[in-house]
């Protein structure tokens, strides 16, 4: 009798715990792009091949489904070299989201290794920094809205938001490519986060930096007015691959 009465609840539970429908990817045309990180360290634009980008960051619900099928990524089983002690620490348990982690919020407290493994499970990879920066330059009617002061202000406003505000859910308005929530939700991992080589003080181009960063030295960042992108670069280049933070999530990409 009890079992019968709880049947609808069980069914609801089953529905909620179903793996999320296949993630949506939008096709982006790519092309020549002027990055805050010039390809040659000076001014050269970069060429971005056409690629596909996940329309939304990966959510708590999606990552929960992933750890259920890939238990080596549960927070109680993950190898310490791949994720720090705070990995998925906002979840109620290793396989329970709980009240601090809503299913449709972007998953955070995620290491680069965990993000990589998740994307592989979607036959995808993490986007490169250039792909991410290029995608995030769009608004609802332009592929590159970065020269619009109003756009810049809107993007920057997010960075002023106190970090203890709960994360919004995904589902923001789609941009011209059909991608949502690149700006204003979470920081996002990129595949080549350890290729950004920004010196501790990028004004120091001589002496110690020359040795630490063989080649052209630490990169000079361009477009000083584009603080938002510069902050992303600074944040990413300061992280280790096993680091997790309460505002760092990810989305995946695919080559065409």
């Amino acid at each position: 009798m009890n079992a019968l009465r709880s049947l609808p609840i069980l069914m609801l539970g089953a529905l909620l715990s179903l793996p999320a429908a296949a993630a949506n990817y939008a096709a982006l045309p790519g092309g020549l792009f002027t990055s805050v990180m010039p390809a040659d360290g000076k001014a050269a634009p970069v060429t971005i091949e056409p690629f596909q980008l996940r329309t939304e960051p990966v959510t708590n619900a999606e990552f929960l489904a992933f750890v259920q099928t890939h238990p080596q990524w549960r927070r109680d089983r993950v190898a310490g070299i791949f994720a720090d002690g705070r990995y998925l620490s906002h979840w109620a348990a290793a396989d329970v989201l709980g009240s601090e982690a809503q299913p449709s919020q972007p998953v955070t407290q995620i290491s680069w290794f965990a993000a990589q493994a998740y994307c592989e499970s979607e036959q995808a990879r993490l986007p490169s920094w250039y792909e991410w920066e290029y995608a995030a330059a769009a608004d609802d009617h332009r592929a590159d809205a970065r020269n619009d002061p109003a756009w810049r202000e809107r993007v920057l406003a997010w960075y002023g938001r106190p970090s203890n505000t709960p994360l919004p859910a995904i589902g923001g308005a789609a941009d011209v490519h059909g991608v949502s929530d690149l700006n204003g939700l979470v920081w996002e991992w990129v595949g080549d986060f350890n290729a950004l080589l920004v010196g501790v003080d990028s004004r120091d181009q001589d002496g110690a930096d020359k040795l630490k960063f063989c080649g052209a030295g630490a990169l000079t960042m361009q477009q000083k007015e584009n603080y938002a992108s510069l902050m992303r670069v600074a944040m990413l280049s300061a992280l280790k691959a096993s680091d997790t933070t309460s505002s760092m999530g990810f989305r995946c990409a695919r080559s065409h």
Partner: peptide, 10 residues
């Protein structure tokens, strides 16, 4: 990434 080394092709 594992060893904490950075590189970037020019």
């Amino acid at each position: 990434a594992l060893l904490g080394l950075q590189y970037r092709q020019l």
